[in-house]
Simulated assay, not measured.
Amino acid sequence: MYINTTGLVLRVTDYKDASRIMTVLTSTEGKLTVSARGAMRRGSKFAAAVQPLAYSDMTLYQNRDRWTLTEAQTIELFSGVSGDVRLLALGSYVAELLEAVSDEDSPNPEILSLGLNALYMLSRNEKDPELVKAAFEIRLMCLAGFEPVVSLCAACGREDVDAPRLDLVGGTVLCHGCRSPGTNETAPLCRGSLDALRYIVSADPKKMFSFKLDAEALSRLSRAAGAYVSTQLDRKFKTLEFYKQLK
């Protein structure tokens, strides 16, 4: 069976005979493992489309549970990301997160669209990468079923939260007076970072990156977002650790 779809290459593994095995997030089939035979040979028509973070129109052939790339036309290579080692590290983190929350043969176009928008923003370099990172992390958690409840203090119900902290386990916001002594799994916020968090959760997808923060608020938001992802998914991400080393 042949299908036509669009897909973002999340991860590649070189294989024998100059071939590549790719993890691809597609618009119609979800996450797939795809073989690209001879893709790395000189003059291969697939050479551009099998690079990490390449987004392409693809024709795939399915034989039982195996998928093979038969045609590909590149749509976007995100050259602004691939040409900068720090942005490439962050783009690789975007891909690793997309892979972590996506399922085989279970399409989620919203998650793919979010990942593409984040990569476009990084490639254009019009926004602080930390802002793009944090907004992507929080919105991805929302789409993956881990949306934090941030409108009120979870304990006292106040909207004007004093010295807010994000509960990394419960996915709620707590004010200073309601935080239990000895509770370590929280991340400090401030008024600006809490307002941004509320915006990210509910914003129109097309306007999700359209906000500004001062350096302190952005730093708190970015740290809280990264910690929330790691806690909710119960894992560390090597690409994120590498990105932090480059900062």
Rank of each mutant, 00 (worst) to 15 (best):
F242A: 10
V201C: 10
I75L: 13
L69Y: 10
L218R: 12
S230K: 15
V201E: 03
N117D: 12
G115F: 05
A154K: 14
V161Q: 08
R64C: 09
G7Q: 13
L143N: 09
V161C: 01
L119C: 02
Y2G: 01
F211V: 09
L168N: 05
F146M: 10
A187N: 03
Q245V: 11
A100I: 01
R179F: 01
G115C: 08
S79N: 11
G115E: 05
D214M: 00
S92K: 04
D57Q: 10
M141T: 09
D195Y: 01
R235C: 13
V94H: 04
L194C: 01
R191Y: 04
M58D: 07
A72L: 07
T239C: 04
D160S: 13
S106I: 03
C178K: 02
G43Y: 14
C142E: 14
P164F: 01
A225V: 12
T23E: 14
E126P: 02
A154I: 04
R64N: 15
A225N: 13
S113G: 11
K212C: 08
T13D: 08
E76W: 09
L32H: 03
T26K: 12
G91W: 00
A215K: 15
L197F: 06
P107T: 05
Y243N: 07
D57I: 07
L122M: 02
F237G: 03
V101R: 00
L240Y: 13
I200T: 07
D105P: 00
A187S: 14
K133M: 01
K133S: 06
E96L: 01
Y120C: 09
Y93P: 05
A187Q: 04
G38Q: 01
A225G: 09
T70R: 12
E76N: 14
K45Y: 07
R20K: 14
T186I: 13
L194W: 03
T183W: 10
N4C: 15
E185H: 03
V81E: 04
G171T: 03
S210V: 15
F209K: 13
A144Q: 07
L10C: 08
T70W: 09
T68N: 14
D17G: 07
C156H: 05
D162G: 06
T26M: 12
L143Q: 09
L69D: 06
L174Y: 06
K244C: 02
F242K: 11
D105W: 15
A217I: 03
A187E: 08
T13E: 15
P129H: 04
L116C: 01
L119K: 02
V24D: 05
E185W: 02
V161W: 11
D65G: 08
Y243I: 06
T70F: 01
F237I: 05
E216G: 09
L87N: 06
C142N: 14
P164S: 02
R235Y: 04
A135G: 09
K207G: 00
L122F: 04
L114N: 09
E76I: 08
L25P: 04
C175Q: 09
D128A: 08
I200F: 02
R124S: 06
S180K: 15
L90G: 00
L140E: 00
K31T: 04
L90M: 00
G145H: 05
L152G: 06
Y93W: 01
K236T: 15
P148H: 11
Q232M: 07
S79C: 10
I138F: 01
I200H: 06
C178D: 10
E29S: 06
L10W: 07
D214S: 02
L246K: 08
L152Q: 13
G115D: 05
Q51G: 10
A196K: 12
V85P: 05
V81F: 02
L233A: 12
